[in-house]
C-alpha cells in the first residue's frame, strides 16, 4: 500500500507580487499582467510505499521545500494531485511551528494540539518528548532564548511523538551536536523499523545511505530519476562532478 501518491504535480509561484492595493489597481487599470510566473514544480509524479524511507535529493532551488510544503498541506498545488494515507508530521525547517514567545513546555502542548492529540494523550507523550529532547532544565524558558540546536532538538522530539504515520524531515539535522545527531539517526531507523513512513531531505548524503531505501533526484522542479538509494546518490554526485568540471573547463 502507498503512503503518498503524487501525480503530475505542478506549482507556479507568482513573483513580484505587490502587497498594496494601489499597485494592484494601477496594473488592473493598465490591463497588464500583475505578476510573473515561476514554475517551482513541473509535472512531478512519484509514490512512497508505506513503511518506506524515501529521500529527496537536489540542489538549492530544485523545489524540495516547495514539494514538502505541498505534501504537508501548507501550499495548494495548481494542478495534479497529492494523496496521503495517514497523518503527516512535517519538520519543514529548524524549529518548525514553534512559537517564540511560548516556553518549551507550552510549545509541546501547542504542537500536540495542532496535530489533533487530545488532552489525555498530550499528558502521556509530554514526558517522553521532554526526555528525548534533553531539555529538562530549559523547558520553562521561552523558545526565543533557545539556541538553534535546542530548537532543532525540541522540534524533532515533538515530530516523532505525535503519532504520525508519515514524517517529513527537511534539513533539520544540519544543526545539533554530534551525539544528538547520532541519537536522531538511531531514532529514525527505529521509526522506519516500526513501520512508519519517512521522507527526508538532506544535504548530508552519507547518513541517507543507511536510513533510506529509495531516493528521488529533483532538478529545477522536475524529476530526474527515481531509484535505489545508493545508485541515486552516486548518480547525483557524478553529475555534480561533471558539472563542476564543465565549469572549470569553460
Amino acid at each position: 500500500m502507498e503512503a503518498i501518491v503524487v501525480d503530475k504535480l505542478t506549482k507556479h509561484f507568482r513573483r513580484a507580487y505587490d502587497k498594496t492595493l494601489k499597485g494592484f489597481f494601477i496594473s488592473l487599470v493598465k490591463g497588464e499582467k500583475r505578476y510573473k510566473e515561476f514554475t517551482a514544480l513541473n509535472n512531478v509524479s512519484f509514490k512512497v510505499n508505506k513503511g518506506e524511507s524515501y529521500a529527496i535529493i537536489g540542489k538549492n532551488g530544485a523545489g524540495k521545500s516547495t514539494l514538502f510544503k505541498v505534501l504537508s498541506g501548507i501550499i495548494h498545488p495548481d494542478s495534479g494531485s497529492v494523496k496521503i494515507n495517514g497523518k503527516v508530521a512535517p519538520l519543514i525547517e529548524l524549529g518548525a511551528g514553534l512559537s517564540r514567545d511560548l516556553t518549551g513546555a507550552e510549545n509541546i502542548r501547542l504542537n500536540c494540539a495542532i496535530f489533533g492529540l487530545d488532552r489525555k494523550r498530550i499528558e502521556e507523550v509530554y514526558p517522553k518528548i521532554v526526555e528525548f529532547s534533553e531539555l529538562e532544565e530549559f523547558i520553562h524558558t521561552p523558545v526565543k532564548f533557545y539556541s538553534s540546536g535546542m530548537k532543532a532538538r525540541l522540534g524533532f522530539s515533538i515530530a516523532i511523538h505525535i503519532d504520525a504515520d508519515i514524517i517529513l524531515i527537511d534539513e533539520v539535522l544540519a544543526v545539533g551536536d554530534k551525539d544528538f545527531k547520532k541519537k536522531c539517526y538511531a531514532k529514525m531507523e527505529e521509526i522506519r523499523d516500526s513501520g512508519k513512513t519517512l521522507v527526508i531531505v538532506s544535504h548530508s548524503l552519507k547518513p541517507l545511505r543507511k536510513i533510506c531505501d529509495r531516493a528521488l533526484i529533483l532538478e529545477r522542479g522536475q524529476v530526474v530519476d527515481i531509484g535505489e538509494i545508493n545508485e541515486m546518490i552516486d548518480k547525483y554526485q557524478d553529475e555534480k562532478k561533471t558539472n563542476n568540471k564543465k565549469k572549470k573547463g569553460a
Binding site: S72, G73, I74, P90, E93, A96, S99, R100
Partner: peptide
C-alpha cells in the same frame, strides 16, 4: 505567519 507557514491545520 510563523505557525501558518510551517504546519497545516
Amino acid at each position: 505567519a510563523s505557525l501558518i507557514k510551517k504546519v497545516y491545520f
